[in-house]
Design a protein around this nucleic acid. Structure first.
Length: 227
DNA sequence: GTCCAGGGTTCGT
DNA sequence: ACGAACCATGGA
């Protein structure tokens, strides 16, 4: 209940974020790997480079040498390890029969498969599930932990899946179907990232801005500990 | 010059 | 199970 109120506050303040930037599912998957611990502006340069070199497809990227691929994605940082991660993703996708063939898996099965790919951890897997595959999975990142712990909804150091499932469960009460959850989870995560860019970085201060009190001064929803 | 960005793997304890 | 080192560019 409170989680949904926070979503509404964020949406009223920032509006639609139009995530994920990208023309197709494959490009979104590539962006999910490239943005690991990396500013998005640097990811865009890497993706532009891939497009110029005609490498923005699974077959081309898989056939490329790791060294050459690394040079193309250089602006995104960690280029040597990300080149290998992109290729393990591409080999996996080709083995599955392409992006469209992923539709045959249920949400939990596809999540397990993605996590088995080298270089894809919980957050990258959930980015792919939600934004590329349109699955109702809530993405937990450092910003999410920071905001929800500041609002006393979570302690902040919960295990990834504990937090993810708790958020999904809480928001399921505001939605009746998966078709409603996908756009809600999509927008919610994007809004948290958007809000994080104007909130203070530190953990302790809890200023009115990062606690959303500026956004909703009389919000009683922000003063309880119950999710 | 320092900090950090839309994380994950590996290797000690 | 948990922490630390490692990966590396570019903007503030």
């Amino acid at each position: 209940m409170r989680l949904f109120s926070i979503y509404q506050i964020l949406f009223d303040r920032y509006g639609q974020q139009h995530w994920w930037p990208g023309d197709n599912a494959f490009e979104i998957m590539v962006g999910a790997v490239l943005t690991q611990n990396t500013a998005w502006a640097n990811v865009e340069r890497a993706i532009d480079g891939l497009r110029r070199k005609q490498l923005l497809n699974a077959e081309g990227m898989a056939a490329c040498s790791p060294e050459q691929l690394a040079q193309v994605i250089r602006p995104s940082g960690y280029f040597n390890i990300k080149a290998k991660r992109l290729q393990s993703l591409c080999h996996w996708l080709i083995g599955q029969g392409g992006v469209a063939a992923l539709a045959r898996y249920d949400d939990a099965s596809l999540r397990q498969l993605l996590l088995s790919v080298h270089g894809i951890g919980p957050e990258t897997a959930d980015d792919i599930l939600l934004y590329a595959c349109q699955r109702p999975v809530f993405v937990i990142d450092a910003y999410t932990r920071r905001l929800f712990s500041r609002l006393a909804l979570f302690q902040g150091d919960e295990a990834y899946d504990d937090m993810r499932l708790a958020v999904q469960e809480a928001l399921s009460k505001n939605t009746v179907s998966s078709a409603e959850r996908v756009p809600l989870f999509n927008e919610y995560h994007a809004l948290i990232v958007r809000h994080a860019k104007i909130a203070c970085r530190k953990k302790s201060p809890r200023c009115d801005q990062c606690c959303l009190r500026v956004l909703c001064p009389s919000a009683s929803v922000l003063s309880s500990n119950v999710v």
